[in-house]
């Protein structure tokens, strides 16, 4: 192989990163399209607030002050971090259970036939609506909330893992079998990486679901946490704090999604379908 060809292939290898991003390479060009729509919403909000002159619609300054107050309150921050801890626990439980079950369903038509009716039935049920029942069984503590979050994230994780495992090229599995790899290691070392691009899409949906069920579970079982702060503020009609909490939850969601998207792209950097999944 000539050195020229090697250089050509290397150029192709790095070419992916060198592709012009939408908005160009300048920081301003990349940040502006994100900030402008938000700025627009903020302006409309402020205008409405001034026009309506009601307590239920406080101005940006008031919301901002409440936001800063939350960030400065150790009790509030402890509540938010308790929420995040439960969310992480529920999500981890989903990863540990739903992903292997989904992958196994994708590889075993018999298992898929057995479990599909159950998952199809459970899918449309709002998981937070199960909270009162779960509280009867497990109390109002962390366990119930972690379980509800687990239920919330499980179905997208299960579904995408199932689809991912089904789409794994059979010849990859055959190649591994010919090398002498047995069924259990194949699931971990061939089916899981083969399904990974799809599994990670499920994770992205799962993170959003975890955030939603986290907040709603705390609305029902108010002990501590972001949802408790939000709905207590609502009950006590402290509106700036309500909107500040909503803003905080939205920013947490944005941050998690942004961080996860970075991780996802790095994990599937080998994949041909990386670009297609970017949309």
């Amino acid at each position: 192989m000539s050195p020229g060809a090697v250089r050509g292939a290397r150029a192709r290898a790095t070419g992916v990163a060198a592709l012009p991003r939408p908005g160009g390479r300048h920081l301003l060009g990349r940040v502006l399209p994100l900030v402008l729509p938000l700025l627009f919403v903020a302006l409309v909000w402020e205008a409405c607030s001034r026009w309506a002159q009601t307590e239920e619609m406080p101005g940006l300054a008031e919301i901002g002050a409440a936001f800063v107050a939350i960030l400065g309150s150790p009790r509030d921050l402890a509540g938010v971090s308790a929420s995040l801890w439960r969310m992480a626990a529920g999500f981890a439980l989903g990863l540990a259970i739903a992903v292997p079950v989904g992958l196994a369903m994708g590889r075993s038509p018999a298992l898929a036939r057995a479990l599909n009716p159950i998952t199809t039935m459970v899918y449309p049920v709002p998981k937070a609506a199960l909270m009162p029942i779960i509280m009867l069984w497990f109390g109002i503590g962390d366990l119930s909330k972690v379980l509800v979050i687990f239920l919330g994230v499980s179905l997208p994780l299960l579904y995408h893992s199932y689809q991912g495992a089904r789409s794994v090229d059979e010849k990859l599995v055959w190649s591994a079998r010919a090398m002498g790899m047995r069924a259990a290691p194949r699931l971990v070392r061939i089916v899981l990486p083969g399904a990974l691009p799809e599994v990670l899409l499920g994770c992205r949906v799962g993170i959003a679901m975890a955030l939603i069920t986290m907040v709603s579970s705390e609305m029902i079982a108010r002990q501590d946490g972001a949802g408790e702060l939000l709905f207590n503020a609502l009950d006590m009609a402290v509106y700036p704090e309500v909107y500040a909490m909503i803003l905080l939850i939205a920013l947490i969601g944005l941050g998690l999604d942004f961080g996860f998207e970075r991780l996802r792209r790095w994990l599937v950097r080998w994949s041909d379908t990386l670009q297609a999944n970017d949309a």
Binding site: D169, K171, L172, W174, S175, A176, R177, A178, M179, G180, I190, P193, G194, L196, W270, S271, D272
Partner: peptide, 26 residues
């Protein structure tokens, strides 16, 4: 299947998440 019979497929069937060297070592 067994390692006494090594397949080579039309679609190559390389493990895409492994580098060239890792594939050959696999």
């Amino acid at each position: 299947p067994g390692p006494d019979r090594g397949p080579v497929f039309q679609e190559f069937a390389l493990f895409p998440w492994k580098t060239v060297l890792q594939n050959v070592m696999y």
